[in-house]
């Protein structure tokens, strides 16, 4: 197969994938929603006069009105501004953590699956050790060690999330490397590196894309969980999780829903839309799926 034709085949695969994805209505809708949301949290602070930090004296726990679109929290900060700034933190933590996990996990899984033997043993035992840890509990201890901040939350979630990528890559690689086309590549003298990165990895990627999207969603959830316990992103920095934290008091829960319901709703909408995108991706990348 000459070079040009090879490229055509590759292009048609991706074009096909995009076409299939676009036909997935829920996934497309989610993608639009997420794009709008990311644009909003990035651009709104530049366009509007938003102040998430000033405590407006005399305006504690105010219900939504003309001045405060979503009311104020218990120390008089504007809830709408905090929602926007909190979105920046929560979404950023989600993407950075997932990326960190993927960058650590995928190469390790590839090595373990391809080489087997002592390399596989070492890497997979490491995975076992990490997976034996209830991540939440280690995260709690680690955040306390590193000092609570958005950066340490990202690090902690990312560093503990790589096992999923490693295991998935590993399980995919051990089946892909037995395929005829890899054997053919090996027979025609492809180096180990070339076999791994040109033949095995591209053919193992589909589930990893899906894993990545779920990983982002899960990281956002983990951040909100930690912050909800009061052990994640520390106040005064806003995150959706620490905004919901206020509802641990029963009176806020019942009488001041504007403090926690919007943060919860937007959190849910974000996580759901990322999951839907992952689902759409999975279907679009699956060559067996015909739409």
């Amino acid at each position: 197969m000459d070079r040009k034709r090879k490229e055509n085949v590759r292009n048609s695969f991706w074009r096909n994938t995009v076409q299939k994805f676009m036909k997935h209505r829920v996934a497309m809708f989610s993608l639009v929603f997420l794009t709008v949301e990311i644009l909003a949290v990035v651009l709104l602070p530049l366009l509007m006069d938003l102040d998430p930090y000033t405590t407006n004296v005399g305006c504690f726990s105010m219900a939504p009105d003309d001045r405060f679109l979503l009311g104020t929290d218990d120390v008089g900060r504007d809830v709408f501004s905090r929602l926007v700034y909190g979105g920046r933190v929560s979404i950023l933590v989600g993407f950075v953590s997932a990326l960190l996990s993927a960058v650590i996990g995928i190469p390790l899984g590839l090595l373990a699956g391809y080489y087997g033997g002592i390399i596989r043993m070492t890497i997979m035992r490491l995975v076992d050790i990490f997976m034996s840890f209830p991540a939440m509990i280690i995260q709690l201890v680690l955040v306390t060690v590193l000092g609570a901040s958005a950066t340490s939350v990202m690090l902690v979630i990312g560093l503990l999330g790589w096992t999923g990528f490693a295991r998935l890559t590993y399980s995919k690689v051990i089946s892909v490397k037995e395929q005829e086309y890899v054997e053919a590549a090996r027979a025609s003298g492809a180096t180990n590196f070339r076999q791994m990165f040109q033949y095995i990895l591209p053919n193992s990627l589909a589930p990893l894309f899906v894993q990545f999207s779920f990983s982002v969603a899960s990281a956002i959830l983990q951040e909100s969980g930690l912050s909800f316990l009061g052990l994640g992103v520390p106040v005064p920095t806003a995150s959706w999780g620490n905004m919901i934290y206020s509802a641990q008091s029963l009176s806020t829960l019942v009488y001041r829903p504007w403090m926690w319901v919007p943060a919860g709703m937007i959190l849910v909408a974000t996580v759901l839309s990322i999951n839907f995108i992952g689902d759409g991706l999975r279907d679009a990348l699956d060559p067996k799926m015909k739409i």
């Binding site: 909800f228 919901i244 509802a247 996580v271 839907f276």
Partner: peptide, 28 residues
């Protein structure tokens, strides 16, 4: 999707609001 997308603590708050505070079927 609800299981994977809605954080437990948020759903818990909603449940507490509905079933414990409003309906008073279950303890908080």
């Amino acid at each position: 999707f609800i299981g994977a997308g809605v954080p437990t603590f948020f759903l818990a708050l909603v449940f507490i609001y509905c079933f414990a505070v409003k309906l008073q079927w279950l303890p908080t």
